[in-house]
Design a protein around this nucleic acid. Structure first.
Lengths: 339, 339
DNA sequence: CTGAAAGCGCTTACAG
DNA sequence: CTGAAAGCGCTTACAG
């Protein structure tokens, strides 16, 4: 492997001059020297050693993308939402001329060490992190970090999320508008999860707008998997819940509910209307196609990366907490309720 | 940020001694010194600078995972197969104590430069690479590289693939065994793609085993998308092809075919049997559930990573070309053909 | 426009 | 068991 020094010797110039042309500071170099060096670089196939550069510059052109395996200790890239979002993030970081180091972690504690080891210029956490952990991470790290789908109101935290409240609201309102009055909400109802809480609040707000209230809420507490959906779909079909529609806080859960209901003789949307959340591409493939709350992943990723690079460039950040819009994708899993 | 030097000063020892304890060479250090240094490391929260270490060791504990955007310039992580496989690979590399740098590339030419810049210890290409490109990459790089789903017979190339021939064979044989004699094969029939060729050869071999031959083959030439499937499903329903079953070389295509056929009054599996390829998790969610050729992604990833690290450790490699087994997941999209 | 030199933080023989 | 010193390949003031 050729080094700066070798190229400099062949060219009969100093190392510094070669360094300058490698880094595009060509205004400091005479035309002849420039050309001579450039052809030498080509000839010897010179590639700068990033480790050496990073050592002196004390950075690394690297962004670490963290994804947690807290919940499932499975392969997190099986999750289509996470994979697709990661793809968008990777794309944008690369376009900014940075490298992406991907790291799945089971304990947030290791994250800070990793960033320091690498002299990372920034980091993105694409799975939710609690406010306490966010606080801790900010203490330990000196590089900017953007947190996705995490709730933290501190001015100095950078977060990008979606309007969870609105998601719950428009899903429920859609069902109400079509005449449904007995509407369940299915999901992992965890008081600690701000995300789920917000969706639930949106659900309640919609109910209230139609003269119902909290005691009309029907909560189907469950993990958000296809299999759980099968179970609850069956339960609904067997009238264990008195509802004509259900808002599932995850598409896979919704799809499971549709299938579970069908297996028990309850046809969606004729007998039961279903709205999902996430608008996974699979929701367009199942029968009936699933009506779902959709987020614009491309936009969300763009906001996150923009926020990150603004912070890296030490620009002023007017709005450190970005909330992306959601909308309802109308498809075939919802039908008017004839009263 | 604390450095070795600082810790050494506080401890009243040389830099080398601290380096030794950081690297676990504790047998060279007296117990008291060891403990003193360890507590200092903790107190000052010392984290070694990987860039400095890499510079002197001329490696980086880093594996680059390349995924190409040749075909679609879209977000490649939308592809569930690729995402899941990447997740498995990432998992295993990390468990081996290495870091993974992910890089999507549109031109293979950039790959070699990147590996050199980073002093990568190894690389994995998770999308197919042509034999010529493989040859070129091996010339330019000095680190081991494992190629997934790529065909190259050179002794010095490391490849991990699946038994594509068997995949085509068992899918077709399954249909034949159930009485089907007019069986189409749907996929991107590209003479240059060894993968597709092998599946096609398996299809033909199965036909021959049942007294049919190449002229009984019905090729539905198409890109392997859901939308294309919709079209061909419709075409089949409208008798544009004289077939009672179809082997689709991709699940999404197969699912599209089922839906396209259904929309045109042709019910799967009653009127048409369908076999897919890849066994994506979505194939278990659609109605009817899709019978599909399945590969063991976990095993494939394990083989790839084992091969890579064997090469990195310079162990002898008995078998540089690994072909993983496939099997047929029987579900609901195939029915016996009553003659 | 170009050069000589210091230094980034680490590891590694070599010597004691 | 411990240390002094060289060196990895680069960048960056500083000087001319």
């Amino acid at each position: 492997m050729a080094t700066l020094k070798e190229i400099a010797q062949k060219a009969g110039v100093s190392v510094m001059t070669v360094s300058n042309v490698v880094n595009g500071k060509t205004e400091k170099v005479s035309k002849e020297t420039l050309e001579r060096i450039q052809s030498l670089i080509k000839e010897y196939n010179y590639v700068p050693n990033l480790n050496a550069r990073s050592l002196v510059k004390n950075n690394s052109q690297t962004i670490v993308v963290f994804v947690s395996t807290f919940v499932s200790h499975e392969n997190v890239f099986k999750d289509p939402y996470l994979s697709e979002f990661f793809g968008e993030i990777e794309n944008l970081i690369r376009q900014n001329g940075y490298y992406v180091l991907i790291q799945t972690i089971d304990a947030i504690e290791n994250a800070a060490t990793l960033m320091k080891k690498w002299k990372a210029d920034g980091a993105v956490f694409i799975s939710p992190v609690s406010p306490e952990k966010i606080h801790q991470l900010k203490q330990e790290c000196d590089c900017p970090i953007v947190f996705i789908d995490s709730c933290d109101s501190e001015e100095t935290s950078l977060t990008v999320g979606i309007n969870e409240f609105k998601g719950g609201f428009i899903a429920t309102k859609h069902l109400l508008t079509l005449g449904h009055r007995k509407i369940g909400i299915a999901g992992y109802y965890d008081k600690k999860s701000a995300i789920v809480q917000a969706r639930y609040q949106g659900y309640i707000a919609a109910l209230k707008e139609f003269g119902l209230d909290e005691k009309d809420a029907v909560i189907l507490h469950t993990v958000t998997t296809y299999e759980a959906g099968l179970y609850f779909g069956g339960a609904i079909a067997n009238h264990e819940y008195d509802i004509t529609a259900v808002f599932a806080t995850a598409d896979l859960l919704a799809i499971g509910i549709m299938e579970g209901a069908r297996r028990n003789g309850c046809i969606v949307p004729r007998d039961l209307s279903v709205v999902g959340f996430d608008n996974l591409s699979v929701s367009q493939i199942v029968t009936p196609k699933l009506t779902s709350v959709s987020q614009d992943l491309k936009n969300k990723a763009a906001e996150a990366v923009e926020l990150l690079f603004k912070a890296i460039r030490k620009e002023e950040i007017a709005q450190p907490h970005i909330i992306c819009d959601v909308q309802l994708e109308l498809r075939q899993s919802v039908l008017e309720r004839v009263l």
